[in-house]
């Protein structure tokens, strides 16, 4: 069966199945299990009301439990076994991994990513949001800077491969160097700094996200506070740093953490740009090196990523609990 037909069938079965499930289960609940008969009408309606939310939630809970909760446990357990999964090795995978140079490079690079990518994207995002705030063509400018968000990481990497190409007739950076008489270089092979060239691709993509959210936050600042500052003789920089930034600090934190999480998931850019060569590996791409080859090691790396995000996850959950 061709994938297209299969896809159409899946949509029909999936959508039809979902609607059918919700419809049938509600009818079943109301007419068969707890029918509002005259003798115990009140009790049955109360019972049906107690059960119904779980009918609505069931498919979501199943999918979330299976695809996101179970893997946390499943991955951890798998990481305690060896390559082929038949021998319990305790924390052997972790011990071996931390002793390895490649892993420590990936860990260090990932640290750089987590520090500089959110910082860079938030900085440029805030800059553009502030600069376009009162601009006539601000929306067009924002739309264009936002655009890389729609591009895949693979596509973006290709776009930047053109920019970074070592041939001065292809890569614009080397063309500029060539114009000033400097010898062409391959930015992907400059030790240490190549990480930053790769990171900039991510910054380029995420700036639009930061900009959209920070721009909305800037619009939400009460005008009186700014007017008062102007009357008191504050210059534009003071207004920005002393009045505006403190008022949107909460949003800046949200943007920062969101980009941080994304950064911990993205293996595509490193994979496409260097394949992890020249000491540019990060944890997600390091994990993919072992995927299909050594599941014990791969799950161990995944669990390290999980441990890194856990503190922020707990903080997120507490924030959410407080707001309810």
């Amino acid at each position: 069966m061709s994938p297209i037909v299969q896809g159409i069938l899946t949509i029909i079965i999936g959508v039809g199945g979902c609607i059918g499930y919700f419809y049938a289960s509600n009818i079943l609940l109301d007419r068969v299990i707890f029918p509002p008969k005259t003798d115990d009408q009140g009790r049955n309606i109360r019972r049906a009301t107690m059960v119904r939310p779980w009918l609505f939630l069931l498919p979501a809970i199943l999918a979330l439990g299976l695809y996101l909760v179970y893997p946390v446990v499943g991955s951890f357990l798998r990481s305690l076994y060896n390559r082929s999964g038949n021998e319990f090795v305790g924390f052997g995978n972790y011990v071996q991994m931390f002793a390895e140079h490649g892993f420590r490079v990936a860990l260090f690079n990932n640290f750089l990513w987590v520090v500089f990518v959110p910082a860079g994207a938030t900085f440029f995002g805030l800059l553009v949001a502030q600069l376009t705030d009162r601009l006539k063509w601000g929306n067009i400018a924002k739309s264009l800077i936002f655009m890389p968000m729609a591009i895949s990481f693979v596509g973006a990497s290709l776009i930047w491969k053109f920019v970074y190409a070592a041939d001065p007739d292809i890569g614009i950076i080397n063309a500029i160097r060539d114009y000033f008489g400097a010898a062409p270089v391959d930015p992907m092979q400059i030790p240490f700094w190549n990480n930053f060239f790769i990171m900039f691709i991510m910054v380029w993509m995420q700036t639009g996200f930061a900009m959209v959210i920070l721009s909305a936050a800037l619009r939400g600042i009460p005008e009186e506070t700014i007017e008062a500052a102007i009357i008191d003789g504050a210059n534009p920089f003071q207004i920005f740093f002393r009045i505006k930034v403190p008022q949107i600090a909460g949003t800046i934190v949200v943007v920062w953490t969101t980009i941080t999480f994304l950064t911990l998931k993205v293996f595509d850019i490193v994979y496409t740009m260097t394949g992890g060569n020249f000491d540019t590996e990060i944890l997600p791409s390091y994990m993919m090196d072992y995927m299909f080859r050594d599941d014990g090691r791969a799950t161990a790396v995944a669990f390290v990523i999980m441990v890194i995000v856990t503190p922020v996850m707990i903080w997120n959950i507490r924030q959410a609990r407080r707001e309810l």
Binding site: Y67, V72, A302, I305
Partner: peptide, 11 residues
């Protein structure tokens, strides 16, 4: 925020 990577091998 659960990293996708965790799900790959078990799923």
């Amino acid at each position: 925020v659960v990293p996708l990577q965790l799900a790959l091998v078990p799923m």
